[in-house]
């Protein structure tokens, strides 16, 4: 718990989104299966899309709540001391890996 408290706000946001992604993939997948079967060949694509959808929805919901409270939306900017070029390249690589694994 101390390690979580000591981590930077950006690291907390990333960790939170990772948890949200997993919850969305498995929890969302479970709900999805109540209405529609998930073919085994499309399991990664369907669950991955649901995980990302849940992430985006949580960012939307948290941002709306923060804006209504008069605060800034959820801050997804990398830390000020991070190299912006490096951060962008890492984001592009991450996006490529997600894109090629989920959106096949």
């Amino acid at each position: 718990m101390d390690a979580i408290r000591a981590s930077s706000p950006f690291a907390k946001v990333l960790a939170g989104l990772l948890v949200t992604l997993v919850v969305g993939a498995f929890g969302g997948g479970w709900v999805f299966e109540r209405f529609h079967p998930i073919p085994p060949a499309a399991a990664v694509g369907v669950r991955g899309s649901l995980g990302l959808a849940f992430c985006c929805f949580i960012i939307f919901a948290v941002s709306v709540i923060r804006i209504l409270r008069g605060e800034k939306p959820l801050d997804l900017k990398p830390p000020e001391d991070a190299n912006p070029l490096l951060a962008t390249i890492v984001a592009i690589i991450f996006g490529y890996l997600i894109g090629t694994s989920i959106f096949r």
Binding site: I38, A42, L50, A53, C56
Partner: peptide, 22 residues
């Protein structure tokens, strides 16, 4: 930004349904 995340989440749900339907 807020609208973009809402729209993206809806698009990804469509993607999930489309992937399951394929």
């Amino acid at each position: 930004i807020v609208t973009a995340f809402l729209v993206t989440s809806l698009i990804l749900v469509f993607e999930a349904i489309g992937s399951a339907e394929i």
